[in-house]
């Protein structure tokens, strides 16, 4: 699935819910949830929780850091895809609120968004048509 695909037909499969514990990474946590439940491709159907600090990418390759704790996740969308090498990669985008309620948005950088208290996430499996 590494080539550029504009349209992919498929159907929705199973649904998984997880509570991910403190200090686990948001992005890799979602990937590991797919490992735990046997999903290879999935969409986020709902998510909320908090981060210690948040780190989002910028268009010029820099990092937007928002200091907590806690930084609350107030909106999250994204997907998990299996790459050509078989590995799983989550791409998550969202809006976070700092401890004063000020909001920031962007793509979450893998490995740099440790969960603060809890992260609740529901994934729906995506089954691409063969």
């Amino acid at each position: 699935m590494g080539e550029m695909i504009a349209v992919e037909n498929g159907s929705m499969g199973r649904v998984a819910y997880a509570r991910i514990a403190p200090n686990e990474d948001l992005v890799q946590g979602v990937e590991k949830l797919c490992l735990a439940e046997g999903f290879r491709n999935a969409f986020v159907r709902g998510a909320l929780g908090s981060l210690v600090d948040a780190c989002m990418g910028t268009i010029d390759g820099k990092y937007l850091q928002i200091q907590g704790p806690a930084v609350e996740i107030v909106s999250l969308a994204g997907e998990v895809r299996q790459g050509d090498d078989g590995s799983l990669r989550a791409a998550l985008t969202g809006v976070v609120a700092d401890p004063e309620g000020n909001v920031y948005g962007g793509p979450f950088v893998a490995g740099l968004n440790p969960i603060c208290m809890t992260f609740e996430v529901t994934l729906e499996e995506w089954l691409p048509a063969k």
Binding site: V15, I20, P22, N23, E24, G29, C55, Y63
Partner: peptide
């Protein structure tokens, strides 16, 4: 940036992802 690991008041639970599916 270097992510911070915070210390919580209770004992560390070795199960980090509690998940179920339908």
């Amino acid at each position: 940036p270097r992510p911070r690991t915070l210390i919580h008041p209770g004992r560390f639970n070795p199960v980090r992802i509690q998940s179920l599916r339908s």
